[in-house]
Computed example of a mutant assay.
Amino acid sequence: MTRFDAADPRERQKLFADAFTAHRERASAFVTFEVEHEGAIDGEDESAPWVQFADQTFNVDVTDEELDRLKSMLDEFPEFRIDQMESPESAEGTNVRITARSDANRLAAFVDRTFRAVYGRGEDYRAWVAAV
Results as ranks from 00 to 15, higher is better:
residue 24 R to F: 06
residue 82 I to G: 04
residue 128 W to H: 08
residue 69 R to Q: 03
residue 90 S to W: 14
residue 60 V to E: 07
residue 30 F to N: 13
residue 42 D to Y: 06
residue 92 E to P: 03
residue 30 F to Y: 15
residue 75 D to H: 12
residue 18 D to R: 10
residue 123 E to S: 11
residue 30 F to L: 10
residue 74 L to M: 08
residue 78 P to Y: 08
residue 57 T to H: 11
residue 69 R to D: 13
residue 102 S to V: 00
residue 26 R to F: 12
residue 29 A to V: 13
residue 70 L to W: 06
residue 115 F to A: 01
residue 66 E to C: 07
residue 101 R to N: 11
residue 58 F to L: 02
residue 12 R to T: 00
residue 11 E to A: 12
residue 16 F to I: 07
residue 36 E to A: 09
residue 92 E to K: 04
residue 3 R to E: 08
residue 20 F to N: 00
residue 15 L to M: 06
residue 112 D to Q: 02
residue 128 W to A: 07
residue 3 R to P: 05
residue 88 P to G: 05
residue 54 A to E: 05
residue 108 A to C: 04
residue 82 I to C: 06
residue 75 D to T: 15
residue 30 F to S: 09
residue 64 D to G: 14
residue 115 F to N: 02
residue 84 Q to I: 11
residue 36 E to R: 10
residue 54 A to W: 13
residue 126 R to K: 08
residue 51 V to E: 00
residue 123 E to H: 09
residue 13 Q to G: 04
residue 82 I to T: 10
residue 94 T to L: 04
residue 52 Q to T: 08
residue 99 T to L: 09
residue 49 P to I: 11
residue 124 D to G: 07
residue 10 R to D: 08
residue 76 E to M: 12
residue 78 P to V: 02
residue 85 M to S: 15
residue 53 F to T: 05
residue 58 F to K: 08
residue 51 V to Q: 02
residue 81 R to K: 15
residue 62 V to T: 09
residue 114 T to E: 01
residue 117 A to P: 02
residue 97 R to L: 13
residue 127 A to C: 05
residue 95 N to F: 11
residue 4 F to T: 14
residue 47 S to C: 06
residue 67 L to A: 13
residue 19 A to L: 05
residue 104 A to Y: 04
residue 9 P to K: 02
residue 86 E to Y: 14
residue 42 D to C: 04
residue 83 D to N: 13
residue 124 D to W: 09
residue 99 T to H: 11
residue 131 A to Y: 15
residue 129 V to I: 11
residue 55 D to G: 11
residue 94 T to K: 01
residue 47 S to V: 12
residue 112 D to H: 02
residue 42 D to S: 01
residue 114 T to K: 00
residue 95 N to H: 13
residue 43 G to A: 07
residue 17 A to D: 00
residue 79 E to K: 15
residue 93 G to T: 02
residue 108 A to S: 01
residue 10 R to C: 07
residue 102 S to T: 04
residue 70 L to H: 08
residue 47 S to Y: 13
residue 92 E to N: 09
residue 11 E to P: 00
residue 117 A to F: 03
residue 93 G to H: 11
